[in-house]
Design a protein around this nucleic acid. Structure first.
Lengths: 405, 405
DNA sequence: CTGAAAGCGCTTACAG
DNA sequence: CTGAAAGCGCTTACAG
């Protein structure tokens, strides 16, 4: 089971060069010889030592996937979709989790990557100029997903347009106080998604003429707990919102929990839109913006594999920037704004203090009239177009009415 | 930046042997020399070629993490917790996703693992005897998490006892028709978790004297969509349950969605308990069994690293089986069974047909009196004890009452 | 089509 | 403490 190439060669009565050529399907070996060698290799359970063949050939046969989070849905979904592509291409997948600044410095010191991998897939990781410089100096293909980097191939969505879909949907429903639960937009190490989604949200509100209110923005850190906290803050303020757009489904679901505890009904009292189309969003009937995460993962992996096999051929170094379409999926958490609800409807929470505890005597649920509308309304973004133009998406209700929003 | 050890040696005026020793912190080098060599190596941006040093030393410096799913929460959480342990130990993490039978055969053909990694972490993957045989023949440390394998170290929980916590909780609340949403218990390739959780559930029901009703079990495939389907089936049957225990939070959340669509209130009409303590479970106030997934991931990684560094020392080959404790976390989705509700309460869904559509005029929500009780009631399992004894867990309510259940 | 040989860049006994 | 040299197990020009 632990045979070496020399043993195979001896057993087959050929040179090790011939064994190597036969096993790797090279030209220049007679079919008969090749076949015999393969049979013997199989019989001996031989397989080439990766380190030896890497050292001799100079090819690492490995790609690095670098992610800042492993536990969050977006990231594991990308990994799940990318992995089979690499496997198919015969590439080993070396996983790097860069969390803190410390590990970042370490991984981007070239040492860790150079001589070790022949390609890098960077997932939603924004980098400093110095880090980008390091990646360039690696001299190997680097592809990114979730964030576009100057000079590298990437697969992304248009976060501005995607966020506009969500915000516009709420504005179209008559909401005048639309809140944002943002990811961490302060941290410069975070990637462009939170920045762009916020920009999209703001642009819609500005166009709607409702003006921007800093009191309508809160931070949720892209986690359910963060979303729950953020919703708590929003409804503790002087003028609470009537609708919430959360930059991720996980935050939106956290917000739903808080709303229930506050005794606010969804969507009667408050509408909520998420972002991602997390599997649980469908289960919870959460209206959301689907960004086809699996697609992104698969595409970027294919992009990297292509860069690897293309070698230094024509266009290999070209920084192809693919932008995938997104769409709004209207489910049960959004509804027309109440005629003139005002803060009165929020009596239970409008006392100026966060009220995360339960509100006895109130209920949370989906109103009879709004539940039936499900999963039927989608609005594709321009896709592969990066302009933040006003979205006039085609929305089809279950009854078949086409609506311009 | 691409210096070789020879260049460093020349530059430092020493032999490459000395460079190697200095850089690896070996004994037998004068401090002065070692320091100078390190300085020059750093200046030249030198780092040893992994494949060369692996070939020369025979050590792979890499561990394989093998998982059947990358997208499901349990798996990404384990990965997230295990990764830093390997990084700390200077080990590369090679990720293997074995889904279909095809890729399994491939990965377990020894070739893929041998000569490539020096340790294997198997996540919740049940194996055939042949596959286990292959792992043994690898001759390297193999640790498993989520499932215990004969002859290998492992970190698991007592799934039987853990499931009993959930079922007993429901029985104690007076529920006489407790349903199970199981993972795939038919598939022999699935690991012991679904089998054991079902066993725990059944044992409680048998002890409770309510008897076992096959009509109270449905399959959910460990996904939210599967859980939603399963709940639909359960409530389409002749005698629907009044409580549900789902073998994962994702399935439980899917079930919650279905219940809402059916117009059934949680927990007034139906109680629901999940399994995992998924981050979203807290947000949704889902009563669940916490199994400390991050703990399991960290522990098993440490176990593997220990096996690696212990080498063939005393007890290195011992198959240490660690069993971590679980606990019930009572939140807002479980409540005392209705006095004598019977199928009447389920009028809207008791027509014998799956009724996944919305039920107009009904609401879903958390009752005033039950919401306040949150996150305070926990019941540790015996931990590290594998016996499926009747659980008499200590449960403390928010009001401080101690309850024997 | 086939083989002998150099070489990939390290590590590790073995001498000194 | 230090160095010269063998060797890890392959791949790849280079001859034939």
């Amino acid at each position: 089971m632990d045979a070496t190439i020399e043993e195979v060669a001896r057993r087959a009565g050929v040179s090790i060069a011939t064994v190597s050529r036969s096993l790797r399907g090279r030209e220049g070996v007679s079919p008969r010889t090749a076949e015999r060698v393969r049979a013997i290799a199989h019989e001996l359970g031989y397989s080439a030592s990766p380190s030896a063949s890497r050292l001799a050939s100079g090819r690492a046969g490995t790609v690095a996937v670098i992610m800042p989070f492993l536990g969050r849905w977006f990231f594991s979904e990308v990994l799940d979709a990318a992995e089979p592509v690499f496997r198919e291409a015969g590439l080993d997948l070396l996983l790097y989790h860069v969390g803190d600044r410390e590990s970042r410095r370490k991984y981007f010191s070239v040492d860790l990557l150079r001589k070790r991998v022949e390609g890098v897939l960077l997932v939603s990781l924004p980098l400093t100029d110095a880090e980008i410089e390091v990646l360039h100096s690696l001299g190997i293909p680097v592809c990114t997903v979730g964030v576009a980097l100057e000079g590298f191939r990437s697969v992304t969505i248009d976060d501005v347009s995607a966020a506009r879909l969500a915000a516009q949907h709420l504005v179209n429903l008559g909401h005048e106080r639309v809140a944002l639960i943002a990811g961490d937009t302060e941290d410069p190490t975070l990637c462009g998604a939170p920045r762009d989604r916020r920009a999209g949200y703001r642009s819609v509100l500005e166009e709607a003429g409702t003006g921007l209110d800093p009191g309508l923005e809160a931070r949720g850190d892209f986690t359910a707990a963060g979303g729950a906290m953020a919703a708590g803050e929003l409804f503790a303020r002087q003028h609470p919102p009537t609708a919430i757009f959360a930059e991720s489904d996980e935050m939106a679901i956290g917000a739903l929990g808080t709303l229930r505890r506050l005794g606010l009904r969804v969507p009667q009292d408050v509408s909520v839109v998420g972002f991602d189309d997390h599997p649980l969003a469908a289960a919870l009937e959460l209206t959301t913006v689907s960004q086809g995460v699996a697609d992104q993962g698969r595409r970027v992996a294919e992009q990297l594999v292509a860069s690897l096999t293309a070698g230094s051929g024509p266009g290999a170094g070209a920084s192809e920037q693919v932008q995938l379409p997104t769409r709004l999926i209207v489910r049960g958490t959004t509804a027309v704004a109440k005629p003139a609800a005002g803060p009165s409807a929020l009596a239970g929470a409008g006392d100026g203090k966060p009220r995360l505890g339960p509100a006895p005597g109130t209920r949370h649920g989906t109103a009879p009239g709004t539940v039936p509308r499900r999963n039927k309304e989608v609005a594709p973004t321009p896709g592969a177009v990066g302009l933040a133009l006003p979205i006039r998406a085609q929305v089809t209700t279950q009854k078949g009415r086409a609506v311009q929003q």
